[in-house]
């Protein structure tokens, strides 16, 4: 018996969300008296034995050229076969872009109940109940899985990575890999930017900034904090910022440690996309802006004065 954690990587490096999934999966193994094992598909330059630090005993790798690009059909077959081979009763996948492509397929192959978007460890005191976010972050549901094998996809930034000591045993797994039916013809990555869903800090702007030409103050603050940048829906719709920065119920949902909202009133649809953030700071000149009710810290003031000061103060703090 085991808990199998699917480990995702990009450009040779294991993704942050996968470290969270490893820690989470290892904890489930401890809780259920089984061992945690990791599965890596394709070529990775990171040291796989070091994944033992997160609590996994074994790392299985399937290295095959056909796995260098994501074809959900090909991946799911390999993951499901590896799960069966390692006697997995729980499979953990990150609820990321890759995870969303494969978790449902893996669940069907294993005839396993799926909780997609989990945000806490399962409660195994009476059955197997996993808490997940619903209504776009406005609520949680406790979902019971009744099948013998369970698949959980874990929300990024919802479980803290713990690195301890340990070395995992790395082995090559021999599983037949199908030829992909999906041919990737181009990859366009925005280089130098922090992916919004992985960011620890997000700085976000709304209509209060009055126009795209005023975004400089926000970008300076983001740069000083090493933060990703985001925007409200009206800003995305007006093409002041690229639409992939739109955060909210119908945009990207984020859960950073710190979310700084500048000139955003805080409509319910926007809050749905950000209310899993640990700390929310709101800067708005309107004291009645609904966002203040959802915030931890706030400044009622003019963004054009407050934001440059904030950048300066952070610089000062870092210099100390």
């Amino acid at each position: 018996m085991s808990v199998l954690i699917f480990v995702d990587h990009s450009e040779g490096h294991i993704k942050k969300a996968s470290f969270e999934a490893l820690t989470y999966g290892a904890k489930i193994a401890e809780q259920t008296g089984t061992t945690a094992e990791a599965l890596v598909l394709g070529t990775v330059s990171d040291d796989l034995a070091a994944l033992g630090k997160y609590g996994v005993k074994k790392v299985h790798q399937v290295n095959n050229e056909s796995l260098n690009h994501l074809d959900a059909q090909v991946y799911a077959k390999v993951i499901a076969e590896a799960a069966t081979a390692s006697g997995a009763t729980v499979v953990v996948i990150s609820h990321t872009q890759t995870g969303k492509a494969i978790a449902g397929r893996v669940a069907v192959r294993l005839k396993a109940g799926l909780v997609a978007g989990a945000c806490a460890l399962p409660d195994t005191s009476n059955g197997f109940v996993v808490k997940k976010t619903v209504f776009s972050g406005k609520a949680f549901a406790n979902v019971s899985i009744s099948s013998p094998v369970k698949v959980i996809s874990l929300n990024p930034n919802s479980y803290t990575t713990i690195a301890g000591e340990g070395t995992a045993e790395v082995s090559q797994l021999s599983i037949a890999v199908d030829a992909p039916k999906v041919k990737v013809t181009a990859v366009n990555k925005v280089s130098g930017e922090i992916p919004l869903t992985e960011a620890e800090i997000v700085v976000s702007g709304g209509r209060g900034l009055k126009g795209p030409e005023n975004w400089g103050i926000l970008l300076d603050l983001a740069k000083e904090l090493g933060a990703a940048t985001a925007c409200s829906r009206p800003v995305g719709d007006a093409h002041w910022r690229p639409h992939h920065e739109h955060v909210g119920q119908t945009g990207v949902q984020v859960a950073p440690n710190l979310y700084i909202a500048i000139g955003i009133s805080g409509a319910i649809q926007h809050l749905a996309g950000v209310n899993r953030s640990k700390i929310i700071v709101v800067i708005n000149k309107d004291p009645e802006a609904p966002f203040f009710k959802a915030a931890d810290y706030g400044i009622v003031g003019d963004a054009f004065e407050v934001v440059p000061k904030l950048t300066e103060e952070i610089k000062k703090m870092k210099a100390k």
Partner: peptide
């Protein structure tokens, strides 16, 4: 087959309330 079922729902805990900082004292926010 049905493999999962919702046992219960929960609302997120309410925020303790916003701490406001004066715009003339941005250093305090930091």
């Amino acid at each position: 087959d049905t493999l999962t079922s919702i046992v219960s729902f929960e609302l997120p805990p309410a925020k303790a309330g916003v701490k406001l900082v004066s715009p003339d004292n941005v250093g305090e926010l930091v």
